[in-house]
Simulated assay, not measured.
Amino acid sequence: MIPARTTRCTGPNHVQGCCAPTATAIDTKWLAAALGLPPVAITTVAANAFSGGFSPIVKSLLCVEYDATVPAEESSRPAALFMKLLPADTTNLVHRLGDAIVPMLQQAHRVEAAFYAHAMQFEQLRSIVPRAYHADCHQAILLADLSSFGFKPLSPWSVDLTEGPDVDRTALLAIVDTLATLHTSTGVIPAGSLLTWDALIQSRTDRVMIPVKHDAKALETLLHLFCAHFRPDAPVLLRNLCSRAAAVGYAAIVRAISTTSGIAHILHGDPNPGNVLYNAVDSRALLVDFQDTAADAPAVVDIARLLISAMHSRSRASLEAELVSTYVAKANIVHRDQFTRDLHLALLADAILIMASVAFTLETKAPALFYALGERSIACLRDHAAEMVEALQGL
């Protein structure tokens, strides 16, 4: 059981008199201000930084000790916190990632901070995310560390190139239920705080197209390179599908998703299992990493991202219908057939993004993650090729 939480969040702007720290200098006074405590309330704080995958955002576990003589509510004295910190100096990031990527990174952090600040105001959202103690759209986000309450991140991938990750059926049903809660949440979202549907499409398109200079032919070449590398014997249908998908483009495919499939009040944007905290005892899932969160976007996009990142194609074939049934019932989706058709379009769009990223990194010592995602993506295309070709016909 998660302890009772107050609805206090200090974002989305700076705390008064509180300047976010650098990764190497976590200040007790800054942390006290972020938690709404007197400056002398915290005696020590230890920051244990760890790798955050491929994002340059610094992630740390903060272990905190308090001065027992300073009065404060017990709920505002977390012994451990998870911190996400946007580097203040972007010079090195520009050198590493390019000047086009850094603004995307900054935008993603602003969106996530805005979401947490919004979520803490509404009970429905507080039930599906960790407590946010501080959400600074300029630099730092502080979340409750729930590991001691049995919540652990699910593994989003496998290094085995012949098997994609397989998330347990019970966990998948819990995630689908949580996504339905997110999608049907109520409450007024501050204008401009989250991405619009068009802005999300543009952001995702840029991640693929910036490296290939927005050249559709270059994208087609990347997709064929992917097929040649992972499946030299790729069937003609699959190669033709890649060519057709490249010609149509990611943006056109996702814009073809019908609003009759259901619109999410809030779309997570990237609900892969690595962005889920799961309690196996209670079969309860919480969501984290809201960097791609959008308002009023097709809900099916989240379900597609979950399926393509959580299941091997063989498992998806047997579980997809059950997961879709569970979701449409909880989210009150009326047009199930349209939802399923759009799900395959969204799966195709996600596969394009992943395949292009994989192909682009083939010559740069691509990490095992990219290869595992590539294996899973091409399996998705192979298994759903007929439905996807039909879905593409009118685009």
Rank of each mutant, 00 (worst) to 15 (best):
G249L: 07
S357V: 03
P273D: 14
I266K: 11
S51A: 11
R131C: 13
P367M: 08
R110K: 08
Q291G: 13
D168F: 02
I42Q: 07
E220S: 12
P165Q: 06
I201P: 00
V254N: 08
A379L: 08
I352M: 09
F82P: 02
V254M: 08
C227P: 00
R8K: 12
V45H: 04
A385N: 11
D233V: 00
R239F: 03
T260D: 11
T24N: 14
T170V: 01
K365N: 14
V111G: 06
D198E: 15
T28M: 04
G53H: 10
L97E: 15
L142M: 07
L345A: 14
S313L: 10
A372E: 08
H344T: 09
N275I: 05
A372L: 00
Y66D: 06
V102I: 15
A247R: 13
P12G: 12
G11V: 02
H224P: 02
P232R: 13
V301W: 14
L381V: 09
C137I: 07
L306W: 15
V208T: 13
L362P: 04
Q106Y: 11
P165A: 09
R5G: 01
V70E: 08
A68N: 01
V111L: 06
A20D: 11
A391V: 10
I189K: 13
V45Q: 06
G164E: 02
V208D: 05
A117P: 11
M388S: 05
E375M: 10
K84Y: 08
